[in-house]
């Protein structure tokens, strides 16, 4: 049993599962700096490049964006790692939501929910920005990449362009050897 608790599969799944339960008011994108610290800096399971590649693939493929953790799980502990990590980030929080809906705690009065939502909004925004800052530090190693990030940011803020077009254009620009 000790061998199980020492395994990278258990450590990864339990840590990410715990993080998913802490990500209140902010969703799973916000805990990215901690995921990066845990899998890249502390355990060296992934290189910086792999981490960023997985995050990007998760953004670009269909389905919820938080599923980039599935790719991390696969890298760390194979098929079972992918399954265990995916379940770890989804099942506990869904069970909690189910229990709260079932018992009527969620869905009644609005003021506690509003208080929390307003109170956590600045923290959530800061966590999201921290996530992108950590990614930018890893990805934007030279001026060309930083410029591409900036162009993508401005396009997404100033126009209603679909994000997938921007990511696709990034792939084409990268393939052409411009970054």
């Amino acid at each position: 049993m000790d061998a199980f608790f020492d395994s990278s599969l258990w450590q990864l799944a339990s840590h990410l599962g715990m993080l998913s339960m802490v990500a209140i008011g902010s969703g799973l994108g916000a805990v990215l700096p901690e995921v990066h610290r845990f899998v890249v800096e502390q355990h060296h399971w992934l290189s910086d490049e792999q981490f960023v590649a997985f995050y990007t693939i998760g953004q670009a493929s269909p389905g919820p964006n938080f599923l980039y953790v599935t790719l991390i799980g696969r890298q760390v502990a194979g098929l079972w790692g992918a399954m265990a990590v995916s379940a770890a980030v989804v099942v506990p929080s869904c069970l909690l939501t189910y229990v709260l809906v079932r018992t009527g705690v969620v869905g009644g009065d609005g003021w506690i929910q509003r208080l929390l939502k307003n109170g956590l909004a600045p923290v959530s925004a800061a966590l999201m920005l921290s996530s992108s800052w950590v990614l930018a530090n890893t990805v934007d190693q030279d001026w060309n990449a930083a410029l591409l990030t900036l162009i993508s940011l401005v396009l997404l803020l100033a126009t209603r362009i679909h994000p997938l077009w921007v990511i696709g254009a990034g792939a084409a620009i990268g393939l052409a050897g411009l970054v």
Partner: peptide
């Protein structure tokens, strides 16, 4: 190379989300 370009663009997407959240405060 393609993933590097995609990643640089994806970081912009993540920043844009954060800035939109900031603008909504």
């Amino acid at each position: 190379r393609a993933l590097t370009g995609m990643s640089a663009a994806a970081v912009g997407l993540s920043m844009a989300t954060g800035i939109k959240m900031l603008r909504n405060l």
